[in-house]
């Protein structure tokens, strides 16, 4: 038998991804792989094609599998509302659970909308990933590389945004910062947890990490599959940033200066 080299494994990335996803959708995948075989015949260089295919999958995943999965999720929501609440709101869920449960119909509607509007590949894939082998995890991490999407530095009491970084653009960031602060207060109040950091809050397509410091707190939204190394690195970066800001308080009154600092800090150390 031929020895499996690193490269060989790489060549088989799509094969593995296919294995992960194949179960429910043989037909679509059969068509896909036929196409690939055809392409392979046309080129000896398989690697770029595989990459392209993965990229194609990544982009077109909702189109290829969206309806099927949406339907499955709909049924799951109907049949296991409690679990869905747990799954979607690991932290906040517990706290707002009571009110959510009573409004579960409304919630399921909005979840369905969310699933349609912002279809999240990594979440769906994570489902398939359960119990699969390590190689698959590695592959998916490569495909769904974690990114820092947003960093908010917020004054603790007032909830006023003192500085931020975003990969895209956010409307109403001041309002979001205020509401986030309110939700945070509400959660801390409910659990009398003032001196602890809230755990990560996972939404369907991104994750929010909150870290408390003396007069500020820092909220970071990340997308993709966060590896342990990524999380460790992120935690260090956040601590360092907070230390700099709290040592030189002029940052708190100079948004432009702070924004530049945040950007330097996060982009240099995490990308």
């Amino acid at each position: 038998m031929k020895k499996q080299t690193e490269d060989n494994k790489k060549d088989n990335r799509f094969e593995l991804l296919r294995e992960l996803l194949l179960v429910d959708d043989r037909e679509k995948f059969a068509a896909l792989s036929e196409e690939i075989i055809l392409r392979e015949k046309l080129s000896k260089r398989v690697q770029p094609l595989v990459d392209e295919k993965i990229e194609d999958l990544r982009i077109n995943f909702p189109e290829y599998f969206g309806p099927t999965i949406t339907e499955t999720i709909k049924i799951q929501i109907r049949d296991s509302q409690d679990e869905v609440v747990e799954a979607l709101y690991p932290i906040m869920g517990k706290l707002i659970k009571k009110s959510i449960v009573s409004e579960i119909t409304k919630l399921s509607d909005s979840i369905n909308r969310t699933v349609k509007e912002k279809f999240s590949v990594q979440q769906i894939v994570a489902r398939f990933l359960k119990g699969k082998n390590y190689d698959a995890g590695v592959i998916l991490e490569q495909v769904f590389e974690p990114f820092i999407e947003e960093v908010f530095v917020i004054e603790k009491d007032s909830g006023l945004l003192v500085g931020n970084y975003t990969r895209g653009s956010i409307a109403d960031k001041d309002m979001v910062s205020g509401m986030l602060t309110a939700i945070k207060s509400f959660a801390e109040d409910a659990f009398s947890k003032e001196h602890q950091n809230l755990e990560d809050i996972k939404f369907d397509n991104f994750q929010l990490t909150i870290k408390n410091f003396k007069s500020i707190y820092i909220a970071i939204a990340t997308s993709g599959v966060a590896t342990l190394a990524f999380k460790d690195n992120l935690a260090d970066t956040v601590d360092n940033l907070a230390e700099i800001i709290l040592r030189d308080r002029s940052y708190l009154s100079d948004e432009v200066k702070l924004n530049a600092l945040i950007e330097r800090h996060f982009i240099d150390s995490n990308e």
Binding site: E155, K156, D157, S158, G159, L160, A182, S185, F186, E188, D189
Partner: peptide, 10 residues
């Protein structure tokens, strides 16, 4: 209502 809502207001 969390008391914290009242903090930091001008």
């Amino acid at each position: 209502i969390p008391k914290a809502y009242f903090l930091g207001a001008s």
